[in-house]
Simulated scan of single mutants.
Amino acid sequence: MDQQRVYQVALNFIPGIGHMLVKQLVSYCGSAEQVFKTTKGKLLKIPGIGEHTASLISSDAVLKRAEDELNNCEKHGTEILLYTDKTFPKRLKQINDAPSLIYVKGKADLNNEKVVSIVGTRKATEYGKRLTEELIEQLTPHNPLIISGLAYGIDIAAHKASLKHNLSTVGVMASGIDIIYPAIHRETSLKMLENGALITENPIGSKPDAHRFPARNRIIAGMCDAVVVIEAAKKGGALITANIANSYNKDVFAVPGDLKNEFSEGCNALIKSNQAHLIQSAKDIEYIMNWEASAKPMAPKLFDTTILESNEKLVVEELQKQKEAILIDNLSWTTQLEPSKLASILLNLEFKGYVNSLPGKRFRLATRK
């Protein structure tokens, strides 16, 4: 067993330590292993670590529990992805309260080029279910990863429609990976594993307690490029997911509905308050997200960089190395250009036709049509 992974997983079993504090501990100590080898006196100097927590870190109990958890994961055909792993969902990694690890069962590419989360009421109408399938069918040329919460109503309709149209779909769970909730969706969840996945941040054996659902919703919002709300009442998990997505600067879309239908109230309110784009078909997503209608990747243009200024040339050459769009913060790091200066350069390059700007402060070379 990889002892380093034992240390990393063990951090998550220290009572009273959340995901943000796990990352802070590793940052202060240098590695997960060093957290457990740091003296109690030094641990107490770390913000957020008190006497009780420092004593728990010094105990061997959490290390034993981590070993047991890794063994259980192997038995359940489940992988633990750590925040530091290359295959950890890159979009999720960008949010402040990202989980420090997730449990994954299945074959989905969690870093698919295009990712859409679809959510809605558990008491979906036939109209809502039909809209869900129509939207997913329209999105099929983009081959997106479809994410939802495996719940009744719109969630399970999204998963089933994805399976029908051979799209990879991921169910984000509020329980342990071994507890399918609701149990009636077990058959669908098994089919999802063939070309999709189930994921959770909760240890094996965790029950779907009420407090786990809002936490689950942040993962649904954090893993995607866009959140689509099909039907929603005034209150509920779908609106929570939409609000979280807005706080992450994700694009949110909502389907307008009958003014007299209670399950349209949430969507209509999101649109009315400018918290969601009004959506009638996948074309609205394509327009807002700047997605080409063709699923075939466009060939990059061949640029003459000799006419560019030195920093512009530096940025274009760096973008040529990237296989996909890159966040401006990452581009700033690779080019060693200040973010404010880089933003100005990217704007100029966009005017000149060298660069395409995408939602979420991402950029890529312009494509040849």
Rank of each mutant, 00 (worst) to 15 (best):
A32V: 08
D251W: 02
P203Y: 07
L239N: 06
I230D: 09
G153K: 02
T53Y: 03
D68N: 11
E262I: 04
R65H: 08
N290D: 10
C224R: 00
R218F: 05
N290L: 05
K352Q: 14
V104Q: 10
K321E: 13
G176S: 04
E312L: 07
L270G: 12
L21Y: 03
G41N: 11
Y28E: 15
K234G: 01
G149P: 07
E113A: 10
N243D: 15
A54P: 10
G106C: 03
F263N: 15
N249E: 12
S294A: 14
L270F: 11
R65W: 03
V62F: 05
L44E: 09
K207H: 09
E265Y: 08
K123N: 12
P47G: 08
E350N: 12
L139N: 06
T188W: 02
S100L: 00
L145S: 07
K296A: 13
L131F: 15
Q280P: 00
A108E: 05
H19E: 12
R362W: 05
Q138K: 14
V252K: 09
N71R: 10
E113H: 08
S294I: 12
V119D: 07
K207I: 06
P203F: 07
A299V: 09
G50Y: 04
R368Y: 12
L190E: 15
H52Q: 09
T200F: 02
M192F: 00
S27A: 14
G205C: 02
V255I: 15
E113T: 07
D85K: 11
C224N: 09
C224W: 01
P15E: 05
L308Y: 00
L43G: 07
I244F: 10
S294M: 12
C29K: 11
H159D: 05
I288T: 12
K369G: 13
K235S: 14
G153T: 03
Y354E: 14
G18Y: 01
N261G: 02
P297H: 08
G128R: 00
H76C: 07
T140G: 00
K23T: 09
S162I: 07
H52T: 10
E338F: 02
Q94N: 01
Q138S: 15
V255D: 11
N274M: 11
Y287S: 10
A233F: 06
T140M: 05
G50H: 04
A215R: 13
P203I: 02
F263M: 12
I184E: 15
D251S: 14
G30D: 09
V228K: 03
A226W: 03
P141Q: 03
A221Y: 05
S175M: 00
K23Q: 14
K235D: 13
N330M: 13
A245T: 13
T334Q: 06
L70V: 11
G77W: 02
E194W: 04
D85L: 10
